[in-house]
């Protein structure tokens, strides 16, 4: 495409020898290369938009069908516009219960995994001890292992230790795989921190505890936040591992959706999905906005 745009360029040198004098560029050439040139200039933007569309289209469909009033049990064909599902999201038996359970597990798992993961990351990044490389490898394992294998083996373990399947087993499983992601995120952050900053704090009369709260933690915070958000997202929508380790009465939201899909998905599932999506986008946007406002203020302070 780009070659075609180049060849008739008027700057091309005239062939040497007895060729006729270089002709004026034909008027038609410019006319048909113009759209090509436009395309070339905007190729990156176009590709970006296409990728975004590819990513967002399913979400748009979910959102659209949350306003559907399906004719039968299946919410797969557009029938009529309605806000019934939005006004009564808990209208389906078991949905809100499972949603609450999933949120509780995700919050608790995030809290525990972030706390333990941060501690582990500090140990692995700061200290040398026997078995450090083994620990590093083991931490990485849950990320690399197929979920089915992990879920099944955990299930076997719980069965043999006679821990009753339920809330606790799901929580333990989630904390375990979330931990890896927290450790990786926090460790990367700690490794890139300048150790002299903590020395400077100690030099400036901050004891070990104050050094940690005033300098170390604020500097590690972005890594910890990233790990926590990842944990929440992973725990909230995990299905495979949860399926192996849930009790008969503990149905998480992904499990509820899976179960419902066998008999026909209620519109409310689309409502919950859309709401989660909008909420997540809103949180990210708010963060961006706050950051850019802070930057503007700093710039203003700098200028003033």
């Amino acid at each position: 495409m780009s070659l075609a745009a180049h060849t008739p360029a008027p700057t091309a040198p005239a062939p040497p020898g007895g060729a006729p004098p270089a002709p004026r560029p034909p008027a038609g050439t410019a006319a048909w290369t113009a759209p090509l040139r436009w395309l070339r200039r905007h190729a990156v933007v176009l590709a970006g938009c296409a990728a975004l569309g590819y990513l967002l289209l399913p979400n748009a469909v979910v959102l659209l069908f949350s306003f559907n009033k399906p004719a039968g049990r299946f919410n797969y064909a557009w029938h009529a516009f309605s806000t019934d599902a939005w006004t009564d999201p808990c209208g389906v038996a078991g949905l809100c219960g499972s949603l609450g359970l999933s949120l509780r597990i995700a919050l608790l798992a995030t809290l525990l995994a972030t706390a333990f993961g941060t501690l582990a990351a500090f140990a692995l990044a700061r200290y040398r001890f026997r078995g450090k490389s083994t620990t590093n490898a083991l931490i990485f394992l849950p990320m690399a292992m197929p979920e089915v294998v992990m879920g099944a083996s955990l299930g076997t373990l719980f069965l043999n230790t006679r821990i009753g399947f339920g809330f606790v087993t799901i929580l333990i499983a989630h904390v375990m795989f979330c931990l890896s992601f927290v450790v990786v995120a926090v460790k990367a952050r700690i490794m890139s921190m300048d150790p002299r900053l903590e020395e400077a704090a100690r030099d400036l009369y901050a004891g070990p505890v104050q050094t940690f709260w005033r300098v170390t933690l604020p500097l590690a915070a972005p890594g910890i936040a990233a790990g926590a958000m990842l944990s929440f997202a992973l725990s909230f929508d995990d299905f495979i591992i949860t399926q192996f380790n849930a009790g008969p009465s503990t149905v998480t939201f992904p499990m509820f959706v899976w179960g419902a899909a066998q008999r026909g998905v209620p519109v409310q599932v689309n409502v919950v999905g859309s709401a989660m999506f909008v909420l997540a986008v809103a949180v990210v946007l708010a963060g961006r906005l706050a950051a850019s406002r802070r930057r503007t203020q700093e710039r203003k302070a700098a200028a003033g």
């Binding site: 300048d194 002299r196 900053l197 020395e199 400077a200 100690r202 030099d203 400036l204 901050a206 050094t211």
Partner: peptide, 15 residues
């Protein structure tokens, strides 16, 4: 320990 010493440091690369 450093935080009990009446001594302060200007670090290389400032920290």
């Amino acid at each position: 320990p450093p935080h009990r010493r009446p001594v302060n440091t200007v670090f290389q690369n400032y920290a």
